[in-house]
Design a protein around this nucleic acid. Structure first.
Lengths: 330, 330
DNA sequence: CTGTTAGCGCGTTCAC
DNA sequence: GTGAACGCGCTAACAG
């Protein structure tokens, strides 16, 4: 071990973890020995002894959805800066799998947990309650978070989308949204949509279409709406990938956007601003959700008392796929 | 502790880890006690004692690039099935950061490591050599892998792309590729492009344009090519996001694809098949790279001796953004 | 099939 | 500023 190289045993630990507590000369000697031998401290042993693991468990539905990839990027950027490692789990939108993952991650004694949404299996709540570590729920704005929370109001954001459509003179709307079972974000967006309908006196031409995010599903949904309810004059897609797929389908079918039909998306992915026509959407703080979740976690671990609910802003970004002002039809 | 609930100490460990080695009655008693108390074994302690952590370190340039997200999905699917956890690190395409991550992950005593590419910092090689764990390099097809490897020949795949363009009668090509410093995948694709040029007697109208993957960068690159070298009749974009951005820019500029200019991408993301016109591209096994890397790791950990190099297939998918047969211009 | 003993490699606590 | 003892919670090895 590196200890032979220097002269001491535990001094190595101090030289590495609390350098200021060690005399400069001995510290340098230790560091040199570490360098020479290529000694890598065993963090497992360290964590076991100190009961602090410098590890954060992160659970997302899937990394494959770029909004979660962005969140992970945000988390990773600030956590790695602070010397923390990420333990990643993917739930596939299943509360049962999520509960399994929580259990599996908890077994690794993470310093904290970052999970997605606020709809969890009962077992998850039990586990989280018993585990005495900070937990951040993300992408949501629930009344009573398990512990901490960073997100935005999906409902208000969807309402704002409908308000934008109403302002553009659209009257007959359709909603295309991610499957809502076990997905409080999707559910919130539907609620906001419904509230907007009522508030602005608009009508819904057909029941919400639930579709997993993909361009193809967006295209299919557009086709279905156009064929089943041609009088529909605008569609709210609860994510940009679906919306972009629909825009592409409009092009194939020669459906005029935004005049024949208005399209609004959600997320403000890069594709929104690059599409032809450019996609109107609701911009949400994907990266900042992760970055802020990480910061809250770190502050809490540092012993600070912090406001446990952080509500970030969203913004309707009006572009070319919707009319900006009332047309002649209202 | 759960041990009180039952009657034993290590029997708990056995009942949980090697159930078949424990009498059914006692096993059930233990499991019941575990259930009742909500006992979660401390894996840190277990790993320390057994020197096996059931953890795999995964390093990608960024999760934000969906090709790596797909790989992670593949890894995650087979690893979690086997009870392994993923420790995630993002290098941001920097060999120095990668080396730091390798060191940080090694400190967690992972059972194995899955890294990206074959171009690493010297320190990474040193660390990997000293660490006595299986390592899988992915997305690459180098001659002498550090340990194991799963990927495909980026060079051959790029060559195939050029071959496709040549067959379509395109003669004056341009290349748009990810920044090639420290990126052996991008470098390989350029080499394949160059080889194709030579082999088919085509010419390159301007030096390779290096651009990070984004729709905007693809659009800008297209503009640059068209303006600087209007005689260019086809462009090979080394990823689909760039290519899709270019296609969108073609639409804005009313540039006819595939007749005025042919566009071929790389990766076969969903956007390729949904674009208008549909994008010709090179399909690569993004998910399977991850899934196979995980399988190789598990087999090795199980003590099997396996073929350390796995070369997967790619395929040129001819769609509408390139001509299929020689036009009248050659 | 089950228990006992010992020790994984550190950090804590308390001496010096 | 440095060291010695002890223990974190579990599993390896060996007994019984």
């Amino acid at each position: 071990m590196a200890r032979l190289a220097g002269v001491s045993a535990i001094t190595v630990s101090r030289a590495l973890n609390t350098p200021q507590k060690v005399n400069e000369a001995t510290r340098n000697a230790v560091l040199k020995a570490v360098e020479d031998t290529g000694y890598i401290p065993n963090r497992l042993a360290g964590s076991l002894a100190s009961n602090r693991s410098r590890t954060v468990g992160v659970i997302v539905p899937t990394v494959t959805n770029s909004i979660f990839a962005d969140k992970i990027k945000g988390l990773s950027d600030v956590l790695s800066e602070a010397g923390y490692q990420i333990l990643l789990g993917q739930s596939g939108y299943s509360p049962e799998v999520e509960a399994e993952l929580v259990s599996a991650l908890l077994a690794q004694s993470p310093s904290g947990l970052v999970i997605t949404g606020s709809a969890h299996a009962l077992r998850t709540h039990t586990l989280l309650g018993r585990a005495d570590i900070p937990v951040v729920e993300t992408w949501t704005n629930a009344e009573a978070p398990v512990d901490m929370q960073v997100g935005f109001s999906n409902e208000d954001a969807a309402f704002a989308a409908v308000a934008h459509l109403a302002a553009g003179g659209y009257r007959s709307l359709a909603l295309v949204v991610a499957p809502m079972v076990h997905n409080d974000r999707a559910l919130g967006r539907k609620r906001g949509f419904d509230r907007g309908l009522a508030h602005f006196g608009l009508r819904q031409t057909l029941p919400p279409i639930e579709a997993e995010f993909s361009l193809r599903n967006g295209a299919d949904a557009l086709a279905r709406v156009i064929e089943a309810q041609p009088q529909t004059d605008a569609i709210f897609f609860a994510n940009d990938v679906l919306a972009a797929g629909a825009l592409l389908e409009c092009r194939r079918r020669n459906v005029a956007v935004p005049d024949r039909i208005g399209i609004i998306g959600f997320d403000d992915l890069e594709i929104a601003s690059e599409m032809v026509p450019r996609l109107t959407t609701v911009a949400v703080p994907r990266y900042d959700i992760g970055a802020n979740a990480a910061r809250m976690l770190l502050r809490r671990l540092a012993g600070e008392t912090i406001q446990p609910k952080l509500t970030l802003d969203f913004e309707v970004v009006a572009r070319e796929s919707t009319r900006r002002t009332c047309g002649d039809r209202v």
